[in-house]
């Protein structure tokens, strides 16, 4: 009897939460008229926002994957003093509120010697389109590193040792064995990174400024339009973000299953 009550309680909590979540998502998706949604989506501002979001996100994902594969492999394969510290450091941005991360980056690329050095080299990151990519990379990289690290950890280093015994150098075994074997995990990391980049708001707002039709990504469009009271535009950008996230989650789950199995 107590088992049944326990099971019912667990099931109740699960159904209640997932039901509320679906309800919340549907309430956004079903709120605007279809014509309203189409009109908003095809507006100049929204098309600019979608283009900028996709363009910056794709660049950011490429950069994130370079970082994630490098750092993930280092963490998974090498032991060195400070290994755990490095893991904690790369995980830190996940625990930070995005606004705080944005503030840190604003100081680094603005007032800190590093930012001043970049400015002296003619690279002005803050409040430019570059800053969108910087913000997205720092926000998304920890998630991708986690997935890539887990993927490499799940592959026995003995595969690489076999490859090396067959004459491959470290780079050869990495390219011919580790990367192909981690393919599913790397795609999953890229998908997660893409979703994080597309949805990156707080960090972009602080570092890039959220200027209309300049540093306006989809989450910024939502924010600006809800501030002006333009609910149709806000909801449309929200719906587009939901579909992008949903697609990313589905792809991630499929690839993640591939990795685990």
């Amino acid at each position: 009897m107590s088992n049944r009550i326990f099971k019912a309680a667990l099931g109740g909590v699960t159904v209640l939460f997932s039901g509320l979540l679906i309800w919340a998502i549907l309430s956004l998706i079903l709120m605007p008229e279809v014509s309203e949604f189409v009109e908003s989506t095809l507006s100049e501002e929204m098309l600019y926002s979608i283009r900028l979001s996709l363009f910056t996100s794709l660049i950011s994902v490429a950069l994130v994957m370079v970082l994630a594969v490098s750092i993930g492999f280092v963490l998974a394969r090498f032991t060195f003093p400070g290994h755990n510290l490095l893991r904690t450091i790369v995980d830190l941005p996940m625990a930070f509120p995005e606004l705080v991360l944005g503030l840190c980056l604003l100081l680094l690329f603005g007032h800190a010697p590093f930012g001043k050095w970049l400015q002296s080299m003619g690279v002005n990151v803050v409040f430019s389109k570059y800053s969108i990519v910087v913000a997205q990379v720092f926000t998304a990289a920890p998630y991708a590193i986690r997935v890539v690290y887990g993927t490499f950890r799940g592959i026995s280093p003995r595969y690489e040792m076999v490859a090396r015994s067959l004459g491959c150098g470290l780079l050869g075994s990495f390219l011919r064995v580790s990367v192909p074997m981690a393919k599913g995990g790397l795609f999953a990391a890229a998908v997660i990174a893409f979703a994080r980049c597309m949805g990156c708001f707080g960090t972009v707002l602080i570092l890039a400024g959220g200027t209309r039709m300049y540093t306006e990504t989809l989450p910024i469009t939502l924010y600006l339009n809800i501030s002006y009271g333009n609910l149709a535009m806000a909801m449309s950008s929200g719906i587009i973000l939901i579909f992008i996230s949903l697609g990313a989650i589905i792809v991630f789950e499929v690839l993640n299953q591939e990795v685990v199995l």
């Binding site: 040792m161 015994s165 004459g167 064995v177 393919k183």
Partner: peptide, 20 residues
């Protein structure tokens, strides 16, 4: 010497065949 220079073949208990 790194492993690739030693020219030693290895076979593990769990085969370690490259799945790709």
């Amino acid at each position: 010497w790194p492993p690739e220079r030693r020219r030693l073949g290895i076979v593990y208990q769990d085969y370690m065949l490259f799945p790709h």
